[in-house]
Computed example of a mutant assay.
Amino acid sequence: MTDVFKKLAEKYRYSIVVFKELVKTDFQLRYQGSFLGMAWSVLKPLMLFGVMYMIFVRFLHFTDGTPTFPISLLCGTCLWSFFSEATSMGLMSIVNRGDLLRKVHFPNYIIVAATTMGSMISLGLGLVVVIVFGFFAHAEYTWRVVLVPFSIIQLYCLALGVALILATMYVYFRDIQHIWEVVLQALFYSVPIIYPLSMVSKNYPTVAKIMLLNPIAQPIMDIRHNLLSPKYVPTVWTEINSWWIPLLPYGCTFVILALGIYLFRRNSARFAEVL
Results as ranks from 00 to 15, higher is better:
252 C>R: 02
221 M>R: 00
17 V>R: 13
61 H>D: 11
97 R>N: 15
197 L>N: 00
133 F>C: 14
198 S>K: 07
259 L>W: 07
214 N>M: 08
169 M>G: 12
164 L>N: 01
23 V>T: 02
135 F>D: 13
58 R>L: 10
4 V>G: 06
235 T>M: 05
115 T>E: 12
151 S>K: 11
228 L>K: 08
32 Q>H: 09
153 I>H: 11
200 V>D: 09
91 L>S: 05
159 A>F: 00
209 K>W: 10
30 R>M: 02
223 I>Y: 04
222 D>E: 11
85 E>S: 13
243 W>R: 15
29 L>C: 05
213 L>H: 07
120 M>Q: 14
187 L>Q: 02
260 G>F: 00
217 A>D: 01
69 F>R: 09
198 S>T: 11
116 T>W: 07
65 G>N: 03
48 L>P: 10
228 L>F: 04
270 R>I: 02
51 V>W: 08
158 L>V: 04
170 Y>S: 10
89 M>P: 05
134 G>I: 06
67 P>A: 04
56 F>E: 01
195 Y>I: 06
56 F>D: 05
153 I>D: 03
225 H>P: 10
101 L>W: 01
125 L>N: 13
160 L>G: 01
74 L>C: 07
11 K>L: 12
11 K>C: 06
223 I>A: 09
21 E>M: 12
101 L>P: 03
92 M>N: 14
228 L>H: 04
204 Y>K: 12
261 I>F: 10
212 L>M: 08
256 I>D: 01
11 K>H: 13
163 A>K: 10
5 F>Y: 13
46 L>S: 11
271 F>M: 03
9 A>H: 07
210 I>H: 01
210 I>V: 14
6 K>Q: 11
186 A>Y: 06
175 D>T: 15
3 D>A: 15
11 K>R: 14
239 E>D: 07
131 I>Y: 09
32 Q>C: 09
145 V>F: 14
88 S>W: 09
27 F>K: 00
60 L>M: 14
